[in-house]
């Protein structure tokens, strides 16, 4: 990819993050896998697991097709009470190089349940590797590092 200015890099990553969050929060989950390359890594883990060198996540996908399968399962197989997320995504720290962009972005997710109950569900950061794929920025890797290893009840919708 061509060299980008620092400001341009941050703006592109922030734009991707905004579109990503909107797809999830607006319940357009079918649009979510397209933010990733065909061969990718998406993992949800926690700061303690990263510190301890634990590889496993609560979600672990190494292809875009696995992300599509997760959406299919959420839509057709899994049972849970209706709820939605509101992602508030911070300003990324991003560095562009010849191999693409490495970025880290803090976020919080507020969860609203069917009955109106709202909770601060997750705080964490996205650790990303992104590439320009024919003019479109896509995720090669998104490791979602939650600040806590505790999750209330269940995690159905992706972060």
């Amino acid at each position: 990819m061509t060299a980008l200015s620092a400001a341009e890099t941050i703006l592109r990553v922030a734009g991707l993050n905004a579109a990503y969050a909107a797809a999830i929060d607006d319940d357009r989950l079918e649009d979510w896998p397209a933010f990733f390359l065909d061969q990718c890594l998406y993992k949800i883990t926690s700061a303690d697991n990263i510190r301890d060198g634990n590889e496993a996540g609560i979600i672990y996908a190494d292809s875009r097709a696995m992300l599509a399968d997760r959406v299919l399962s959420i839509r057709r197989a899994n049972v849970f009470e209706r709820h939605s997320y509101r992602h508030i995504v911070g300003m990324p720290v991003a560095h562009a190089s010849r191999d693409g962009i490495a970025a880290e972005t803090p976020f919080v997710v507020v969860r609203t349940m069917r009955d109106g109950r709202m909770d601060l569900f997750v705080a964490g950061r996205y650790c990303d590797r992104l590439v320009d794929n024919g003019g479109r920025l896509q995720l090669r890797e998104r490791v979602v590092i939650c600040d806590s290893s505790r999750f209330d009840t269940l995690v159905a919708i992706p972060l």
């Binding site: 883990t45 926690s46 303690d48 697991n49 301890d52 634990n54 590889e55 496993a56 996540g57 609560i58 290893s149 505790r150 999750f151 209330d152 009840t153 269940l154």
Partner: peptide, 11 residues
């Protein structure tokens, strides 16, 4: 070998 540790809060 432990490869992950998570807690689920069950109501």
């Amino acid at each position: 070998q432990v490869i992950g540790r998570f807690t689920e809060v069950l109501p």
